[in-house]
């Protein structure tokens, strides 16, 4: 299979901060690839390098075999991009912003087909295109960027946390559009910090932390990483009751409510015991990515890295900067 995005030992330093520290990434043609990592792991930085908007300090990255920094314009003809924190022009309407971005991308050559795609997307995302950029909420700004991205066909979609700010209904619409694009043969790189979102959509995932790739593979291959949290209530619960349930880890009993974790691939073996106990208020929650990292890599987290992870993200700094700029 052809490889569309390839990165080896990618490094990016901002002064003394190492945003990327030897990152590897490989995305094959036609696949939906999840790009996972906690906040501040370097997902957005990687994407900026892949778009040729930031220059790698070390290692190499190619998109369609070309260098993103030198061949940016050539590559951008084949790429649609949705930034993580969408900002719009305050005095341009959403419809104008969609048209502008589509035209700049060159996706409006067939006017009738473009108009049809745009109308359909505005309909499914329930977007009001006549509002000015400044009056959109975060979710609606996100919708404008998504409509603009899907309104012109692209060989690669690079989406940076595209569902942040969308309600569950719209997340469903988004999933449909991803499947539609994938069925047309497009390659999709989907960055996220929500494991469940990636599980629904992606063929393969790459997990990064502190600028390094820690895991990569199909979801089945990564299943060993996940452990699901189960909790339920029952009157007169004792430790002996719980002992009857197989493969329980990290058990806690608080106020008549039991909480424990199980390996995700062993959930089904749990069910007969739960039925037998006649549990109430059963809750089964897949772990968040952060919990996962704490479990698997927590011991490796040295103090310097820990403070880096807590430092404000690039996006937060950008929002601050935008606020400052608006005051002028």
């Amino acid at each position: 299979m052809n490889t569309v995005i390839e990165a080896h030992g990618l490094e990016k330093r901002y002064g003394r901060v190492r945003a990327l520290d030897g990152l590897d990434l490989s995305v094959d043609a036609g696949e939906v690839h999840g790009f996972l990592g906690p906040n501040g792991a370097g997902k957005s930085t990687t994407i900026l390098v892949l778009l040729g908007l930031a220059r790698a300090s070390g290692g190499n990255a190619t998109v369609f075999g070309q260098d993103p920094w030198n061949d940016a314009v050539e590559l951008h003809k084949r790429i649609a991009y949705v930034p993580g924190d969408v900002s719009l022009w305050p005095n341009l309407s959403g419809g104008e912003a969609i048209d502008l971005l589509s035209r700049l991308r060159g996706g409006t050559d067939d006017k009738a087909a473009y108009a049809e795609r745009k109308a359909r997307l505005i309909e499914v995302f329930q977007l009001d295109p006549s509002k000015k950029g400044r009056s959109y909420s975060k979710g609606n700004r996100q919708k404008v960027a998504l409509v603009a991205a899907f309104a012109s066909p692209a060989d690669v979609y690079i989406l940076d946390e595209p569902t942040s700010g969308l309600d569950p209904l719209m997340e469903g619409v988004f999933n449909q559009e991803i499947r539609r694009a994938a069925s047309l043969g497009s390659t999709i790189l989907l960055s996220s910090h929500i494991l469940s979102e990636v599980e629904q959509l992606c063929d393969r995932v790459t997990i990064i932390r502190a600028g390094k790739t820690v895991e990569t593979g199909t979801l089945a291959e990564l299943r060993h990483l996940t452990r699901t949290e189960v909790s339920f209530a029952r009157n007169g619960l004792t430790e002996a009751d719980i002992a009857r349930i197989p493969s329980v880890h990290d058990l806690a009993l608080v106020n008549g409510r039991a909480r424990f974790t199980v390996d995700s691939d062993k959930i089904s073996s749990l069910l007969p015991a739960l039925t037998e106990l006649d549990v109430k208020g059963l809750r089964v929650a897949p772990p968040s990515l952060e919990e996962l990292f704490l479990r698997h890599y927590g011991d490796e987290l040295n103090p310097a890295e820990a403070s880096l992870a807590r430092s404000p993200s690039r996006k937060a700094r950008r929002r601050e900067a935008a606020k400052v700029a608006s005051l002028r």
Binding site: V73, R105, R318
Partner: peptide, 17 residues
């Protein structure tokens, strides 16, 4: 201001050099 606000990023991710 366009660069700081992030709108330039979207324009430069298209075929504008």
């Amino acid at each position: 201001q366009e660069e700081v606000a992030g709108t330039a990023e979207q324009v430069l991710a298209t075929r504008v050099s």
